[in-house]
């Protein structure tokens, strides 16, 4: 028995390249917060051993560099999505890769959101809600997100045998 192909077996869509930039800026903001916290800790906690201080600083520095330069391009390379009339098929991850299949008739509602950074890049995050949880696509092009949203709400029959 050979089940028919999933949408992702045929045609896979990638995110726009500018999503990498968007993720980098998001990570940069996170890194700034972590740096601020670290600075406060080092300033207030004066009786720390030197090697602990060095370890902390080095750890945060390495984390920041990885988060800015390594993670976003890898995440971009890994991510794809495909949507057919019957399924939504998404693969994402970094080291741990997850492929998720949501049958179209399980979709309960869709939520699109975009913050001010996403706005600058004309990107949006799309969350697909089902009876069992949420599947998210972060960093879709805004017009593409609109198209996906319309297509899914067209295809999703909102009755479900919960």
């Amino acid at each position: 028995m050979n089940p028919p192909d999933l949408p992702g077996d045929a045609q896979r869509h990638q995110l726009p390249r500018r999503t990498i930039r968007y993720w980098q800026i998001q990570n940069l903001l996170t890194a700034l917060v972590v740096l601020a916290v670290l600075a406060v800790v080092l300033y207030l906690w004066t009786n720390l051993f030197d090697w602990v201080r060095i370890l902390l600083i080095a750890g945060v520095a390495v984390g920041t560099v990885i988060g800015l330069l390594v993670v976003p391009p890898l995440r971009y390379r890994r991510f794809w999505y495909a949507i057919s009339e019957t399924e939504i098929d998404i693969e994402e991850g970094l080291l741990v890769i997850t492929r998720t299949v949501v049958p179209m008739n399980r979709v309960q509602h869709l939520r699109m959101e975009h913050g001010f950074i996403a706005d600058r890049f004309a990107l949006a995050n799309l969350h697909i809600h089902t009876g069992a949880g949420v599947v998210s696509m972060n960093g879709l092009a805004r017009d593409e997100a609109d198209r996906v949203r319309e297509r899914v709400s067209e295809l999703a029959h909102l009755s479900d045998d919960l």
Partner: peptide, 22 residues
């Protein structure tokens, strides 16, 4: 509702995967 297949690098090398049914 949702089917997930997840692999970590070691699993990929050994040709294995974890399946979650939600």
């Amino acid at each position: 509702q949702i089917t997930r297949v997840r692999t970590n690098p070691f699993q990929r090398r050994a040709g294995l995967a974890t399946v979650t049914l939600q």
